[in-house]
Write a protein that binds this DNA or RNA. Structure first.
Lengths: 234, 234
DNA sequence: TAGACTTTTTTGACTGGTCTAAACTAATAG
DNA sequence: CTATTAGTTTAGACCAGTCAAAAAAGTCTA
């Protein structure tokens, strides 16, 4: 059985991978978990010995298939618990996260399934993130984080907005970025600002915090960039 | 903040104290927690250094007031979670215990209060054990375990039956032992059998597992035993 | 009251997770 | 192409919690 710490690492790596893709660096993990880099190094080493991560020294790690399964189990529990807290105990969407972080390591499979059933198999948690079903299949229509999916010049279709914050939602609606619309990434600045062009030709600057919430599916064939060097993300 | 292990020890000691009274021996704790006696010795030492237990070597430990407060917090969470699982997630009374054992260490005060509110301030968990309110006051009408409260020859009034098992309940009803009736302890055999006399004069043998479920309040003055050497239990 | 037996404590060791400080790599700017 | 710097790993230490084996204390019985 994985310990709490192991589950935390796996979940953090999963989250970073799905936002920025592998490899995931020591310092990214350290930042996400508020641990020292030295601690992370020793943990990722034991995790890769256990076959949960593949690791290249000084470069970073990537979840193996086994690691991804384990991570998805945690993510599933986490999001179901969040949904449960919001629905059944009237938590605000902003309050559920910490509680779910503590509980996710200690609920049984039985509990998870009962919650899922009582909630009638919810598709997403209160933040809009999809809840993996019991078989841990990743619904392909969930899309990929904007900057991870699209290199500058590429176009994609907005799959969902992973947020419930009215301000964020309004900002994106005003920019014409809603599920189903087409966006092209024009530029990703070093300081996080993502410039996108919407179908009507307008360009909008998205702060990192907002861009991170936009999930897209890549358009079948891009106009500019010739095929061949697609990002290698599983 | 107490760790999971600390809370487990405190809860176990509380439970043993309330069934058999202090002092609580190393081996009793070891048995309840499925740990070796050596482990228990070292843990009760650190717990008494922290002021949660008072300890006398080779004799046993007793919860200090601070220890009792900490134990009651855990018991409160445990029982509320049990009630919650049974009510909201349709768990059977027999299934709730293990899940609650895992969760009790990781729910916030906020969670506890919300659950309590949704359940409309339940008085008892699915086993019939009273749920301490937020101020941790022990309702005095909860009574004390039969053998702890009454020495042979003493009489008391049944306060409650801490069980929901139909067989146990039926057995006790047949014996005329229900809340409000008066019982006198005739004898406590070494192998656990407790012989009690009910108000109609009949004697009944209660196996340990059943007797443990009967909680009583001691009658104001016993008939036979002269006053003076009352058990010293807080 | 002197074993014999039971229970408790001591001792020493180990695991998992963490940290600080020091050493090392890799990337980058001259 | 080297020197600086940012990031990573190693080395060594520590804490909480646990155990097995051995020593000590307490208890019971003949």
């Amino acid at each position: 059985m994985p310990t709490d710490a192991v589950e935390d690492y796996l979940k953090a790596i999963y989250r970073i991978e799905s936002r920025a893709g592998p490899p995931v660096s020591t310092s990214q993990i350290a930042g996400a978990l508020d641990k020292t880099p030295a601690t992370v190094t020793s943990m990722v080493e034991t995790l890769s010995e256990r076959g949960l991560l593949s690791r290249e020294k000084y470069t970073g790690v990537e979840l193996t298939p086994a690691g991804e399964v384990a991570a998805l189990e945690v993510v599933r529990r986490h999001r179901l618990i969040e949904a449960f807290l919001a629905e059944q105990l009237d938590y605000e969407a902003t309050e559920v996260h910490d509680e779910a972080d503590a509980l996710e390591h200690h609920v049984s499979e039985e509990f998870t399934r009962r919650v899922e059933r009582v909630l009638d198999y919810p598709a997403a948690d209160p933040h809009g993130d999809p809840i993996p079903p019991a078989d841990l299949s990743t619904p392909e229509d969930a899309g990929t984080a904007l900057v991870a999916a699209l290199a500058p010049g590429e176009r994609g279709t907005v799959a969902r907005i992973s947020d419930r914050d009215p301000d964020v939602l309004e900002f994106l609606v005003d920019a014409g970025i809603t599920p189903g619309t087409t966006v092209e990434v024009v530029d990703v600045a070093s300081f996080g600002l993502v410039t996108v062009r919407t179908s009507d030709g307008d360009e909008h600057g998205l702060p990192e915090a907002v861009a991170d919430r936009v999930y897209v599916r890549r358009a079948a064939e891009s106009s500019a960039a010739g095929d061949g060097q697609e990002a290698s993300d599983a």
